[in-house]
C-alpha cells in the first residue's frame, strides 16, 4: 500500500482483527454468491419438476465424459489451492508457486474443455434461439434446459476467469517472494473463493449431466 498524505492508519487494532474481518467479509461475499447462483438453481428446480422428460433428454445430449473429467479437474485444482494455503503458512515458497501454477493450469484446462463443449453444442444446433434444432425433433421445453445450461455454466465460467486472474496475480507475487507466513491472508481468501466456485460446479455436474 502506498503511503498517502500524513497518516495511512488502518482501521484495525492488530493483524488478528484484520484477518478475522477479512474472513468475515469473504464469507459474507460467498453468501451473496450462494444467492446469485441460487436464483438460477431455483429456476432450474421449477422447470425440472415441470418438464422432467425434456430435462432428461437435454441432459443426454451433454457429454457425460467431459462433465465428469471436468469435475475431477476442478477438484484437483482445489486440492492444489488447499496445498498452496498450507505451503504459504509454512514458508515453503517453491511449493507455493508450484501449487498456484498447478491450480491455474487445471482451471485453464477446465475452461478449455468447457469451450470445446460449447463448440460442440454450437455444431449440434443446441444454442437456444432461432437456430435451436436438436437432432431427433425439438420439444419446446428442452430449450429451457439449454438456456439454463448456458446461463449456469456461463456464469460459473465467468467466475472461473476471475479466479484465474486472481491466481495469476498471486503466482506473480509468490515468484517475487512477496507471499509468506507473515501475511497468508491473500492466498487464504483467494482459496475460499476458488473452493466456492468449485462447489458450484459440484452441484452443476449432477444437475446438468446426470439426469437419466
Amino acid at each position: 500500500m502506498k503511503a498517502e498524505g500524513t497518516r495511512v492508519e488502518s482501521p484495525y487494532v492488530d493483524a488478528a482483527q484484520r484477518a478475522l474481518a477479512q474472513q468475515l467479509g469473504m464469507w459474507a461475499f460467498i453468501a451473496t454468491e450462494v444467492l446469485l447462483f441460487g436464483g438460477l438453481f431455483i429456476a432450474y428446480a421449477v422447470y425440472r419438476v415441470h418438464y422432467p422428460d425434456a430435462f432428461a433428454d437435454g441432459s443426454r445430449r451433454l457429454d457425460f465424459w467431459i462433465g465428469t473429467i471436468n469435475t475431477a479437474v476442478l477438484l484437483a485444482s482445489s486440492l492444489a489451492m488447499a496445498i498452496a494455503d498450507i505451503a504459504v503458512r509454512r514458508d515453503r515458497r517453491r511449493l507455493l508457486s508450484g501449487c498456484l501454477a498447478m491450480t491455474w493450469l487445471l482451471g485453464a484446462l477446465f475452461l478449455v474443455l468447457k469451450g470445446y463443449e460449447y463448440h460442440q453444442k454450437f455444431v449440434e444446433h443446441l444454442i437456444p434461439g432461432p437456430h435451436f434444432a436438436p437432432a431427433g425433433g425439438p420439444a419446446a421445453p428442452e430449450q429451457l434446459f439449454f438456456v439454463l445450461y448456458f446461463a449456469m455454466t456461463g456464469l460459473h465460467a465467468v467466475h472461473m476467469v476471475i479466479g484465474l486472474g486472481v491466481i495469476a496475480w498471486l503466482f506473480v507475487l509468490s515468484r517475487r517472494g512477496r507471499l509468506g507466513p507473515a501475511s497468508p491472508g491473500r492466498v487464504e481468501l483467494a482459496g475460499l473463493y476458488w473452493h466456492f466456485v468449485d462447489c458450484v460446479w459440484v452441484f452443476l455436474y449432477p444437475l446438468l449431466y446426470l439426469i437419466r
Binding site: A31, T32, E33, L35, L36, F37, G38, G39, L40, A43, Y47, I127, P128, G129, P130, F132, Q143, L144, V147, L148, A151, L155
Partner: peptide, 23 residues
C-alpha cells in the same frame, strides 16, 4: 442477501433479450 437475486434475475432478462428466448 437480497441484491444478488435481483442481479441474477436482471441477468436472465438480458440473456433473454439477447438470445431471443429465455427461461
Amino acid at each position: 442477501l437480497a441484491t444478488p437475486v435481483l442481479a441474477i434475475t436482471l441477468l436472465l432478462i438480458m440473456l433473454e433479450r439477447f438470445l431471443g428466448v429465455g427461461v
